[in-house]
Design a protein around this nucleic acid. Structure first.
Lengths: 238, 238
DNA sequence: GTCATAGGTGTGGTGATTACACCTTTTTCT
DNA sequence: AGAAAAAGGTGTAATCACCACACCTATGAC
């Protein structure tokens, strides 16, 4: 009883490795692009202005921009009407034979938490406008013809869920989760039947949110997530 | 529709400010001590060894240890049987008139997510041993005579929940959440009736986990958390 | 054709972090 | 008593990330 679980002790003495500002910035912008939060072709704010928003020096920001330019996420044009633009066809997931270590799979548990929390709070707080937006996104998924298009709507749907929860912190967490998920998602096939069924769940979820049925919404969401988990379970490395 | 919610955009361009290694280390160890994860009087590993575990240089670790020593969390003794020890009576919360800005309250939403996720997964995965430990902790709370003692058991209960979910990432997140919560908790009074009622919920929660009733457990937990939230709601700064 | 607005470049300085060598204190063992 | 061992305590120099700032270059709008 005086003994704590081993997991807690491990967490305390686990390696400390804060990311550098440069790394964080690449991660932030790169994720936003890969998730389609920054639309292809759209223009970023001018460097000096963006540096101020991010509260970092222009030099560091430029390091990040250079990295993302070299990786094909961004293109920059000089001159008066120039600027830094999101590439028309940004690279989607990591490289082709990307290594997926055990750590990558740990997101799944974290995802359960973030999504459940978002849905619970959305059921309590979402306003009509936010619910309409969620509905629009399900319509978008229904009309999508390629998986990539579907996936972009799907990502926005889940992030919008966090927005409907009116919690900036959950929006950040959800963005992070979706970014890490996309590596895993790219591993699996997506027959249209699966997508259709998945989108049915999205629609029913919105209905439950409309009626304020938090337990129902949470329970449905858990099932929704389990779908992905079961498919991925067959691919586990260990 | 091409417009994204404003919250997402804000999250992308929000200030980037990664903590330093020194700050992270103080935070980690300090939180562990304040939460009672490192018991008063217990001994930390020798500096060189701890530095290796944390994957940082001894110099940086020593900066953190010095800070925590000056703040009264640690004491160090020299000589062969010396070492660095957790103080017998470490300072609990932040200073007396600690400033609680709006940011401090954002934890509450994040807490909802982490706790709900932990409970859901615990209902799915917890083994008998872990459930017994949770029960022991409720017994500890029942027998506690001072609030501080109760609170220590309470913290361990919630962290053990995350351990029962078998998710290291949730353990880390839960530890972080509990650490940030403790500033808020210290703001409110705790009559014994409230604590008793709260612990009743703990016990019922364990029962639901035993029976594998995830929806029931999650729903109860949400109510459990709401209790704290409602009390705190009256103290909001804005 | 000029000027405003953008990206591109270079310099120097500061603070965080590291590696490494060495000192001091205290217990334990012979 | 004396030596060895194990711990914390100290100092130094190198490196790296980040920043502020000044300046150059390209180019579209008027």
């Amino acid at each position: 009883m005086t003994e704590d679980g081993a997991a807690a002790e491990e967490a305390v003495f686990a390696p400390v490795r804060p990311p550098t500002t440069f790394e964080e910035t690449v991660e932030r912008l790169g994720t936003a692009i890969r998730l389609g939060l920054l639309a292809p072709g759209s223009r970023l704010p001018p460097e000096r202005q963006l540096a101020r928003k991010l509260a970092i020096s222009r030099s560091t920001l430029r390091q990040a921009l250079t990295t993302l330019t070299q990786s094909g996420h961004l293109v920059s044009r000089r001159g008066r009407a120039g600027g830094t633009f999101v590439a028309e066809e940004p690279p989607l997931a990591g490289g082709p034979g990307e290594l997926l270590d055990e750590a990558a799979w740990a997101v799944l548990d974290y995802r359960v938490a973030i999504e459940m929390g978002a849905v619970q709070l959305a059921a309590e707080r979402a306003n009509a406008e936010q619910l309409s937006r969620l509905e629009e996104l399900t319509a978008g998924m229904a009309g999508a013809e390629e998986f990539e298009e579907y996936r972009r709507f799907d990502i926005r749907f889940h992030i919008s869920l966090a927005e409907a929860a009116a919690s900036p912190r959950l929006v950040t967490a959800m963005t992070e989760v979706q970014g890490q998920m996309s590596d895993l998602i790219s591993l699996i096939a997506h027959p249209t039947e699966v997508l259709t069924r998945s989108n049915d769940q999205h629609r029913r979820l919105v209905m439950l949110l409309r009626s304020g049925d938090a337990p129902g919404a949470v329970s449905l969401l858990r099932k929704h997530i389990e779908g992905t988990e079961h498919i991925l379970a067959g691919l586990l490395p260990s």
